[in-house]
Design a protein around this nucleic acid. Structure first.
Length: 645
DNA sequence: TACCAGCGCGCG
DNA sequence: ACCGCGCGCTGGTA
C-alpha cells in the first residue's frame, strides 16, 4: 500500500510517459455512498502504485477521488482500463459530478471489437444439434492468458469460498462481478489487484496493434467514448409510477384468473383431457401456456393448425373461435403482467428508480443490448401499450425529451447502395414509403392510399432483411391483417427490386463478398500476430463483423450479408450521437435515460426542455447527415410528460 | 438440481 | 430460406 504522496509521484511519472494502467476495486455495496476500496496505477516501467481510494489529503475529504477525476480528464495521458464503464460510474458517483473522461482505452471493448461476431464450434452430445456455438471470452483473465500466457487467478491461492469467487464469474460485461471476490486476506486481495494491474499495459500494446492492423481504430475510439454515456444511462435509471403499476398488476392477475378458468371450462365442456406424451399421466386441465395442449384442443375442435402463433389464432378468432380470442387476450395480459413485475422487482431501494443494464457490444452487429430489465422492449405498438408507457414518468420538475431517426435504415441503405432513385427521393424530401407504393402499384405518388403506404412500408423494411415473397406475405398478414396472394407478393417484390436497381446490385455485391475473404488479424501468446482469411462485413464507419470459416464452409447467410452493414451503421450512428450528447448537453441535471437503437431519451429540467429538444435534434441531424452524406438525415423530437406523452 | 433448446412474444 | 436482441414457460437431459 502506497501513501498519497507516493501515489502522486506515480501520477507524475504517468504524465511523463503519457500512459498508465488504472484498476479500481469498489468497496462493499452495502453502504449507500459509493466508495473505492483499492486503486492501482500501473506504469510502463513496470511499477505499480496501489492505494486506498478513500484516502484523504491534508486539505480535506476525498483527495484521491479528485486526483482520479483529474487523471481521467487529462487528455495527454492515456488511461488503460479493463471495464471503463463501471470505473467511470464509480468515480462519477464518488466525485458527485460529471466526468469528461478522454483518452481512455478499454481493453474489454477493444477485444470485443476485434472479435466481433466470431465463434467456435464445439461438439455437443445431442444428435439434433451436434455443434454448439462458443463465443470468445473477454474477461481480463482470458485476455491475459490468451495474449500474454499469464494465469491471473484460478489455482494460485488456497481454496477459499470455492469456484464462486475470483475465477468463475468473470463474465466480461457484468459490472464489478469479478471484483467482489478478493475480500478475505488483504494480503491476498492486494496481490491479485497488483497482478491484474500489471497486465494492463502489456495488453494495451497488443490490442492497440491489433485494432490498427484491422483498421478498427476509429470504431474503438467511438466505443471508448460511448462508455461514458452508457455509464450515465445506467446510473440515471428510469422512474416508474410504482403504485399505479402495482394496481395494474392486481387487475391483470384478476383478469388472467378469469381467462384461464374460462378456457379450462370450455375445454372441460368439450371433454378435453391432457395426455402426456407417453400416454400415462392424465390431467383434467388445459394449460394455456402449453403449446401441445392448445394445439391438441384446437385440432379436436376441427382447426388443423400447425402452430399456435398469434397470427394463426387471429384467423381463428375472426372465424368465430372464442377460445382463440381468449387465448390471445390471455397471452397479451400475461406478457404485460410479467413485464410490469420484472420492472417492479428491480426498483432500486436507494433512489426508487429502475436501472437496466446496458451491454455495449454484446450484439455481433454492434448494437447495444439491455437486460434486467430490458429497456429495449417497453411496449409501444400493442393495444395497451400506452397504458404501460404512462407509468414511465420523469422526476419532479423534469420532462422527457425523446428523439428518433426517421426511416434511418432506409437512408443507410440508400447511402450504402448509392441507389439513384432512393438518393433523389431523400434529397428532395420525398416520403419513401409513398414512393415505393406508387412505383409498385403504378398510381401517381399523390394518389397513394394509406393502406398502400402501409404495405409499402412493410416491403421497405423487408428489403433491409433481404426477405422473400413468402415472408412479405405473412408479415403483411400479421401486421395489418391484409391477405395478399403469393403471386401478388412475388410480383411486388420483383417490382420493388427493379424500382431500386442500385439496391439489387448492392445485394449482389454483398452476396459475392460472402465467398471473398479478407485477412483478419488475431494474436495469441504462442503465434504472436497472424492473419486468417475470413468473410466479413463492414459498416460505413469501419466496424467489422467476421465469420469463422471451418474448412470450405461459409457460415454467413446472405441475409446477414445484407442486414449487418445496415444495422451496424445504425449502431455506429446512434453511438456517435450518444457520445456527442454526453459531451455537449448532458450534465448532473440533464441526463441520458435510454437509447433504443434509433431513439434517444433524455430527462431534463422542465424549464429548459425546449432548448434541449432543439439541441438534440440538431445533433442527430448533423451527425447523421455527416455520416450518411449525401443522404440527409431527419430526426423527430418531442417533449413528453410520460413515455405515452 | 441446473442447464439447454424450442416456442412465442416484445422491441428496433 | 427473415436481421439483431432478451424473457418467460415447458419439458428433456446430465
Amino acid at each position: 500500500m502506497h501513501s498519497l504522496k507516493e501515489w502522486k509521484f506515480g501520477l507524475e511519472k504517468a504524465k511523463k510517459y503519457g500512459i498508465c494502467g488504472l484498476a479500481l476495486q469498489p468497496a462493499d455495496q452495502d453502504s449507500f455512498r459509493p466508495a473505492i476500496k483499492l486503486v492501482c496505477l500501473a506504469l510502463p516501467d513496470k511499477s505499480v502504485y496501489i492505494s486506498d481510494g478513500r484516502e484523504h489529503g491534508t486539505d480535506g475529504a476525498g483527495e484521491m477521488i479528485l486526483l482520479l477525476a483529474a487523471l481521467l480528464e487529462q487528455r495527454s495521458i492515456r488511461k488503460v482500463i479493463y471495464g471503463a464503464r463501471p470505473a467511470l460510474s464509480l468515480i462519477r458517483d464518488s466525485a458527485g459530478r460529471k466526468i469528461n473522461a478522454c483518452n481512455v482505452f478499454d481493453l474489454m471493448l477493444a477485444s470485443q471489437i476485434c472479435w466481433s461476431g466470431y465463434y467456435y464450434l464445439r461438439p455437443s452430445g445431442s444428435t439434433c444439434h451436434p455443434w454448439r456455438r462458443d463465443v470468445p471470452d473477454h474477461s481480463l483473465a482470458s485476455l491475459a492468458e490468451r495474449h500474454l500466457g499469464i494465469i491471473l487467478d484460478g489455482e494460485g491461492g488456497e481454496g477459499d469460498g470455492g469456484g464462486d469467487g475470483g475465477g468463475g464469474v468473470d463474465s466480461a460485461e457484468e459490472d464489478n462481478a469479478e471484483e467482489d471476490s478478493a475480500e478475505e486476506g488483504d494480503r491476498n486481495g492486494d496481490g491479485l489487484a497488483l497482478k491484474r494491474a500489471s497486465v494492463l499495459l502489456p495488453l494495451h500494446n497488443i490490442l492497440a496493434e491489433l485494432l490498427a492492423r484491422n483498421g478498427l481504430e476509429k470504431i474503438a475510439d467511438l466505443e471508448f467514448q460511448v462508455a461514458a454515456s452508457l455509464a450515465e444511462m445506467q446510473g440515471s435509471g428510469i422512474h416508474l409510477e410504482c403504485d399505479q403499476a402495482r394496481g395494474m398488476v392486481c387487475r391483470e392477475e384478476y383478469e388472467i384468473c378469469n381467462l384461464v378458468s374460462a378456457m379450462q371450462e370450455e375445454a372441460r365442456r368439450k371433454g378435453f383431457v391432457t395426455v402426456s406424451h407417453d400416454g400415462k399421466r392424465l390431467c383434467c386441465y388445459l394449460n394455456p401456456d402449453r403449446t401441445e395442449d392448445v394445439m391438441a384442443f384446437l385440432r379436436r375442435r376441427g382447426y388443423p393448425v400447425s402452430s399456435t402463433k398469434a397470427e394463426i389464432l387471429k384467423g381463428l378468432a375472426a372465424a368465430g373461435c372464442a377460445f382463440a380470442e381468449a387465448l390471445l387476450r390471455y397471452r397479451r395480459v400475461c406478457h404485460q403482467l410479467t413485464f410490469l413485475c420484472s420492472w417492479l422487482e428491480k426498483v432500486s431501494p436507494v433512489d426508487g428508480r429502475v436501472h437496466p443494464h446496458f451491454f455495449q457490444i454484446q450484439s455481433s452487429t454492434g448494437r447495444i443490448s439491455s437486460r434486467n430489465p430490458n429497456a429495449h422492449q417497453i411496449p409501444s405498438t400493442g393495444e395497451d401499450a400506452s397504458a404501460i408507457r404512462r407509468l414511465f414518468t420523469p422526476a419532479e420538475g423534469k420532462k422527457f425529451v425523446k428523439a428518433d431517426f426517421s426511416t434511418i435504415e432506409l437512408r443507410i441503405m440508400a447511402r450504402l447502395s448509392g441507389d439513384r432513385v432512393m438518393l433523389e427521393a431523400f434529397k428532395n424530401g420525398v416520403d419513401l414509403h409513398r414512393l415505393t407504393a406508387s412505383r409498385i402499384s403504378g398510381v401517381p405518388i399523390e394518389q397513394v392510399t394509406q393502406a398502400q403506404r402501409k404495405a409499402a412500408k412493410t416491403m421497405n423494411f423487408l428489403l433491409i432483411y433481404g426477405g422473400s415473397a413468402r415472408s412479405l406475405q405473412s408479415r403483411i398478414l400479421s401486421d395489418y391483417g391484409i391477405f395478399i396472394s403469393s403471386d401478388e407478393a412475388e410480383q411486388a417484390r420483383e417490382n420493388f427490386l427493379s424500382c431500386y436497381q442500385g439496391v439489387r446490385e448492392w445485394q449482389e455485391r454483398q452476396l459475392s463478398e460472402m465467398s471473398f475473404t479478407v485477412q483478419h488479424y488475431f494474436h495469441n501468446c504462442i503465434q504472436g500476430f497472424f492473419a486468417l482469411p475470413l468473410t466479413a462485413t463492414t459498416t460505413i464507419m469501419g466496424r467489422r463483423r467476421i465469420w469463422p470459416r471451418f474448412g470450405a464452409g461459409i457460415r454467413a447467410s446472405k441475409f446477414q450479408m445484407y442486414n449487418t452493414p445496415c444495422q451496424g451503421t445504425g449502431a455506429d450512428l446512434i453511438k456517435l450521437v450518444m457520445a456527442e450528447v454526453y459531451d455537449k448537453i448532458s450534465s448532473q441535471e440533464a441526463r441520458i435515460i435510454n437509447s433504443v437503437h434509433d431513439e434517444i431519451l433524455l430527462e431534463v429540467p422542465e424549464e429548459r426542455a425546449e432548448e434541449y429538444a432543439v439541441k438534440l435534434k440538431e445533433i442527430m441531424e448533423r451527425i447523421g447527415s455527416e455520416l450518411l452524406h449525401p443522404v440527409p438525415v431527419k430526426a423527430e423530437v418531442r417533449i413528453m410528460k410520460s413515455l405515452a406523452e
